[in-house]
Amino acid sequence: MKAGNFELPRYLDRIAYRDEARPDLASVTGIMRQHLRAVPFENLDVQAGKIVSLVPEDIVEKIVHRRRGGYCYEVNGLLAMALAALGVEYRFVGCRPMTYSARRPRTHMAILARLDGEEWLCDVGFGSYGLRAPIRLNGTGAVEQDDDVFELLSQDGREYVLRARVEGDWANQYCFDLAHHEWVDFMPANWLNSTHPETLFTRHRIVMRQTPEGRVILFDNRLKTIAHGTTTTRHVTEDELPALLAETFGLEPTA
């Protein structure tokens, strides 16, 4: 995954990553954490009636140069560019979201990166209880990441299920297998998420950013703040929205 206008130093500055960037687990963990805190998951373009562009240069222009966020294809695509620039071997996987009441198609994108001789699931584009750091593909047991707890399960070594502890119970987030996916394979799913009248992204405004304490989520006009397991909510008026996007999510009011 490459773009002619991608520059690793400028990307690292965008996410405020200040340490040395190396092709190893420690660096990618730090980059992923900073990306999640600096670049919000958001679907404001879809809400404005636009079809999200998967042209790599457009993604760089939007997120790095204009300091916007994006949804899974955009933010994970940008992370893939950084991995490529670092010399990290990776591949895309197509994931089936499991947070809906009905079975859904494989519309989510994540990344498997080879770090320190093993494969790790990396994902900066799941806007709910998403990972906060890489998780080992063939690890065992629950993994604590800040105040969140995750587990990556596999019964046969083919299909994997990522689940998270949500209010004390395990909740499936998405599943995937190891089938090879190319960038072009996600274009139909992107079209679906950008245009179908019944997708989550066309029906609801979603903006989410991780924080060291938890995460902040704007869903339509409800702002939810999760800090160390405690959740608070409040209503946001349309008049308050531009300032909220700028101050809480780091987005320009014109977004």
Rank of each mutant, 00 (worst) to 15 (best):
G229P: 01
H204N: 14
A171R: 14
G229W: 02
A164H: 06
I206H: 03
A189W: 07
R158S: 09
V149R: 08
I206S: 03
N190Y: 07
L218D: 03
L223W: 01
A179D: 13
H196M: 12
R163M: 04
H204Y: 09
V216F: 00
D169R: 14
V184G: 06
V184F: 09
E213R: 07
D177E: 11
R215C: 04
W191A: 09
I226C: 08
N221K: 02
H181E: 13
F186N: 01
D185L: 11
R222Q: 03
E167I: 00
T195H: 11
L200A: 13
R222L: 02
I217A: 04
R203S: 10
L153M: 11
A179R: 14
E198H: 13
T202C: 15
V166W: 04
Q173C: 08
Y174L: 05
E159L: 10
F186I: 01
R158A: 11
P212S: 05
L162H: 01
G157W: 06
Y174V: 03
E159W: 12
A189S: 15
H204Q: 10
Q155N: 13
I206M: 15
D169I: 07
S194G: 12
V149F: 02
E167H: 06
G229V: 05
W183Y: 12
M187P: 00
R203V: 04
S154C: 10
L223A: 03
A171P: 05
R209T: 11
D177N: 14
V161T: 12
L192N: 11
L200E: 08
L192C: 08
I206V: 15
T199E: 12
P212K: 01
D220Y: 01
K224T: 15
L223N: 01
D177H: 11
A227I: 00
W170M: 01
T211C: 09
R209K: 13
D156C: 12
S194H: 12
T211Y: 06
E159H: 13
G214H: 07
P197T: 04
T202K: 15
R163G: 03
R215H: 10
V216M: 08
D185C: 10
Q173R: 10
